[in-house]
């Protein structure tokens, strides 16, 4: 797989020192081989990055809450700002009874946020630029929200598919559309994060390649562009994490409050 990929990129782009095409950065490399039956459960560079993200989250909050003071230190107030941000988001979107889902939303937010931001560092790996990861997260959220909805409302949860005040004439058609829109949710949720992260990283790599090819004379033009796009990517990384958590809240709201 890796060799094939290398050969392909070598054929179409020979500018790099080795055959490092713009897609090279997304390659999964097994670090510790581990196979169970026909399943490949190797510990990869993606897993390493996930471990790193989780450890960093843990360290951030363990450190911030080690000495709890009324007047917070900078570290503690960073943790408090993050917490308040999420708590407000959950309260605004689900309401007071939604606060029991705050740990879930907060965890998701931190995971996506740190994956996005740490992925921007040179030589690191962006977990969220793989659709497998974002789709697993989105499916877990979607299935979870559906289960919560049915657990809380029983068969009444189906009334989500028929908005209030629909004339009977268009009701069958609208139910079809609403069902469709319910099934679109996990796809758009995963696609958005994946597409944004991947597109940004490919763009950065392509432009960075131009710096080398254009040399000293014109190389500064893409360099300026790369600088600007890096700033843009930092913003995208933050906004996408926010959007992911926000949509989780919106889906949970449908499940908890039903209209």
């Amino acid at each position: 797989m890796a060799e094939e990929h290398g050969a392909e990129t070598h054929g179409e782009a020979e500018h790099g020192a080795e055959n490092h095409g713009p897609m090279h950065q997304f390659e999964i490399k097994p670090l510790i081989d581990f196979h169970v039956g026909k399943y490949d459960l190797s510990y990869t560079n993606s897993s390493l990055m996930m471990t790193f993200v989780v450890m960093l989250t843990f360290l951030l909050f363990a450190g911030a809450t080690r000495k709890r003071t009324m007047v917070p230190s900078r570290w503690q107030s960073l943790a408090e700002i993050l917490y308040e941000f999420n708590a407000t988001m959950v309260k605004d979107n689900i309401g007071k009874q939604g606060l029991k889902y705050l740990p879930f939303v907060f965890t998701l937010f931190l995971f996506v946020l740190l994956s996005n931001v740490l992925g921007l560092m040179p030589y690191s790996f962006t977990i969220t630029s793989h659709i497998v990861v974002t789709a697993s997260l989105a499916l877990a959220i979607w299935i979870g929200a559906t289960v919560i909805g049915f657990a809380r409302h029983g068969f009444h949860y189906f009334s989500l598919l028929l908005p209030k005040g629909t004339p009977m004439a268009v009701a069958p058609f609208l139910v079809l559309i609403e069902t469709m829109s319910y099934f679109i949710r996990p796809v758009s949720l995963s696609l958005r994060l994946f597409a944004n992260m991947m597109a940004g990283h490919v763009l950065l790599k392509v432009l960075a390649g131009f710096i080398v090819t254009l040399g000293l004379l014109f190389g500064w033009i893409p360099l300026v562009a790369v600088f600007g796009i890096t700033l843009l990517e930092i913003m995208v990384a933050l906004i996408q994490a926010y959007v992911f958590a926000l949509l989780t809240c919106i889906y949970l709201n449908d499940a908890v409050n039903l209209h």
Partner: peptide, 25 residues
């Protein structure tokens, strides 16, 4: 403004995903 940016990012993908899901199903 932040809300606006986040909504703008959602619109395009929403249309794409809806057609993809419809086509796939």
């Amino acid at each position: 403004k932040a809300e606006g940016i986040s909504i703008g990012m959602r619109v395009g993908i929403e249309l794409l995903a809806s057609v993809l899901v419809g086509g796939g199903l």
